[in-house]
Design a protein around this nucleic acid. Structure first.
Lengths: 367, 367
DNA sequence: CTGAAAGCGCTAACAC
DNA sequence: GTGTTAGCGCTTTCAG
């Protein structure tokens, strides 16, 4: 939108007041405090407004005066094209939007292209608070958000920023439960497919050191939980192949699964750190004519709708609730000034893609 | 956070200027017109700002002054919970968000609960324009949008509102092409699963009159296109069963397919007016152990990613592009004052769920 | 390159 | 119930 934005503003509160021969307060009250003036007068004002094409008090001017924008800002650093394609992100958005809607607040998507460090957009946003969705700690946009004198709540990432609220799930515990399920089935030779472990592109095997040093807490914890479960039964984690993908898409999951099976044909289960990747792994299995779960077990994490439809064994996290809680944390804060941390529970969903590898149990009963 | 969250604004442009003993103009220029003052002075200002915790010019005050909000409002009437769950809507959003991002504009989701006719939110939105996504013509929120003195662009619906831009696809033509494909395969006894045809809840058969009078242009046109194709080969459309569902979800699609097959076991193809419904129909077929496409052909519309993965025969519409065009229409309008209509093309995608029913061809060759 | 002046359109005390 | 008085924090001619 170039040039003069609103070509001509038909009328202002002041001009309306002049036209009617009443004070500006009266007109303002007609809109904002109907109980402060007689019904007939109010009707007269509104009628005149209609007649003159006055669209009601200018929202920006009102915001300036009342010191509230009536909107919360959402900072998504990852390219938008990704955010809207990722079912976990859209679930989160849904919950957040719901919370905003209930509170009558708008939700402003702050335009940040991860390329230009165009922090200006953050400064430009007329909002009463920010929700930050899974952003890296040293992101300049995030920095800019912290500078703004408004409350902020973080989802998942970054962790440990002092003074801000945070909502997350217990990724480690969730994945540990899944790991225990696999252990129980008798799986010992497993492979892992995970997403981005560092900021620079890397596709391929991720040795144990890389896993531990990942700057992505969510991935780190999910892998860690799995490791907990398998280490507990004597599996040497350094021998467990982990394949990393920079992109987070079914295609990436499929190619990672293919890579994993090519280099480690002995694995009986592929554990993916997300459903999106697992969906790809399943697709690969179908194409390669590998029986799931007969020959191969495939699992995910998140519990997205499509995973449900496919009968994927996974760990469900309450994504929508996460968004809602984030919104509530921001909107319902009283005069609280101590930051709050909310950790939501996960739920193991055992469905159709995990099975076999029972030999281990026979082994056990032979003890 | 670097200090008490919602504490009063630490400093203002004026206080900073006073502190430094320069004029407000100078401080303002330091932020907005770096070329209007010496580099060292600018640095001095910025440094002082850092020191005093001045987060830069207040966005709302600036907006009031410059008469531009730096954001586009999005009106989605359907409950948000739906909008973010529907892959078509999220695709649209993705494109729109992308266009906004490129233009450095925010995207404000206007909080409208379809229940309360709480038009206030529309008046409250500090935006330079609105995008309206598939909303009914008499929606009060939409009315409110039109009252605002800012440009508006509509996607799909409502049609024929004078003075506003609109972007859509040729639904009729797309569906006709699909219909012709089915006709070519030899299908003559088909059934249709469609979504909401009216504003009041209705689940069940939709007779021909209801189809024609639907207030949802998209549904009307899609059914119409199919009708064109089948009428052309002599099928009596009044005999074609159409099952309507109020909800738009795979579950609804599954139940509609079940209903259709129960009442009309003779159909050889189920044409769904959206992929989401078709996904449900496929699921039903799988559960009922009906061979697709051996015994039954199932088709969709939209070309969403999951449909792709399932090998669904469908009509692809460029959803993302639609959103992008909507954004560009709003953002790139020069001094144009004649409304623009953009109709995007669709593409028939013949995949794995359409087939058999060839007998008809043999019949034909016997002519 | 800098400063003074003039509002953008509105709301909120507080008096009448 | 209604009007008067002050700004909210900033940008922007237009002189110096």
């Amino acid at each position: 939108m170039s040039g003069p934005p609103h070509v001509r503003r038909p009328a202002t509160l002041a001009s309306l007041a002049a036209e009617l021969g009443v004070s500006r307060t009266t007109v303002s009250n007609a809109y904002n405090r109907p109980d402060q003036l007689s019904a007939p007068l109010r009707e007269k004002v509104l009628e005149a407004a209609r007649r003159l094409g006055y669209p009601g008090p200018d929202p920006v001017a009102r915001s300036l005066r009342t010191r509230r924008a009536g909107a919360v800002g959402l900072l998504l650093t990852e390219a938008l094209s990704y955010a809207f394609r990722d079912p976990v992100a859209t679930g989160f958005l849904e919950g957040l939007a719901l919370a905003c809607e209930r509170a009558g607040q708008g939700l402003l998507l702050v335009p940040v292209s991860s390329e230009h460090a165009d922090v200006a957009a953050v400064h430009q946003a007329g909002v009463d608070g920010f929700v930050v969705y899974s952003v890296s700690e040293d992101d300049p946009h995030f920095r800019a958000v912290l500078e703004r004198p408004v409350p902020t709540v973080v989802c998942d990432q970054p962790v440990g920023v002092e003074g801000v609220d945070r909502v997350s799930v217990d990724d480690r515990q969730g994945m540990r439960a899944l790991g225990e399920h696999l252990v129980g089935l008798g799986h010992r030779r497993i492979g892992v497919v995970c997403m981005r472990l560092g900021t620079v592109r890397h596709d391929g095997p991720a040795p144990i050191g890389r896993q531990e040093e990942s700057t992505y807490p969510v991935q780190r914890e999910r892998i860690g939980g799995l490791r907990d479960a398998f280490t507990a039964v004597g599996v040497d984690w350094s021998q467990v192949p982990v394949v990393e993908r920079y992109e987070h898409s079914p295609e990436a999951g499929a190619s990672a699964a293919a890579e994993l099976l090519a280099t480690h044909p002995e694995v009986t289960a592929i554990v993916c750190t997300s459903d999106v990747l697992a969906i790809g792994a399943l697709q690969h299995a179908a194409e390669a004519d590998i029986d799931v779960p007969g020959r191969l077990t495939v699992t995910g994490f998140d519990g997205v709708p499509e995973a449900d439809r496919l009968g994927l064994t996974t760990v469900r996290q309450p994504v929508r609730r996460k968004g809602q809680v984030a919104g509530e944390l921001l909107l319902d804060r009283g005069e609280r000034n101590t930051p709050k941390q909310v950790v939501l529970p996960t739920e193991l969903v055992i469905a159709a893609t995990s099975g076999p590898a029972k030999r281990r149990e026979e082994f056990f009963s032979g003890w």
